[in-house]
């Protein structure tokens, strides 16, 4: 059968996302938190993997999360339903892995060249600094935005997962980050609906 590849339909019950940025932006931690939130809020299965090695120290860093109601065979992403790119380099590296009409979310201050008009852009790092008092929580704002846009995890489950991992003394900053992420993503969603 010479046309097998044309007949392959990717599994529709798998949701595959990749959180990417540069080393230090907390992409792996964000993927772990998101995976735990899925566990707190549903009976779905989750597989979380990461690329690990020299590129985790600066350079592009990424972590994949696969969510599915059925058994997850292949643990890494095959073709992305969602890509979060916190840097230009991350977007350049992984954009081609995104499905047609997949969800693209970017930090629109740090990412300037986007090869499509169909994306959600939020200034995660700036919002973290200006509204939450620390850029450290930019990844949590992004997670909240993903939760709001995809509906994969509820606010309560996300808050539970974030606070379980947050260092003591940063609870308020993290709660604020979730609030900001959900608020800003909801605004974007409303804008897109009008279009």
């Amino acid at each position: 059968m010479k046309n097998l590849m044309d007949k392959i339909v990717l599994p529709s019950d798998r949701f595959e996302m990749r959180l990417s940025g540069s080393g230090g932006q907390g992409m792996v931690l964000a993927a772990v938190i998101f995976s735990e939130a899925v566990g707190f809020g549903s009976s779905k299965n989750v597989a979380q993997t990461q690329s690990y090695g020299p590129e985790a120290r600066g350079g592009a860093s990424k972590s994949d999360v696969v969510v599915s109601p059925s058994e997850i065979f292949y643990p890494k992403a095959i073709k992305l339903d969602l890509l979060l790119a916190m840097t230009q380099e991350a977007l350049d590296s992984y954009y081609s892995a995104l499905k047609d009409h997949g969800i693209l979310i970017i930090d629109d201050v740090l990412v300037t060249h986007v090869p499509t008009d169909d994306y959600y852009g939020l200034p995660f790092t700036r919002l973290a600094r200006e509204e939450c008092g620390h850029i450290m929580v930019a990844n949590v704002i992004a997670l909240a935005a993903i939760a709001e846009i995809t509906g994969l995890v509820g606010r309560e489950a996300l808050e539970q997962a974030v606070l379980a991992r947050a260092p003591r003394g940063t609870e308020d900053k993290n709660k604020k980050a979730i609030e900001v992420g959900i608020r800003e993503a909801a605004k974007l969603k409303a804008k897109r609906k009008k279009k």
Binding site: M1, L4, K7, V9, F73, Y74
Partner: peptide, 19 residues
Amino acid sequence: GSVARASLQAATLARQAGV
């Protein structure tokens, strides 16, 4: 090992294509 997971995924997809 991990290749078994890729094989299970591939076989499931190929079955849907009639193989």
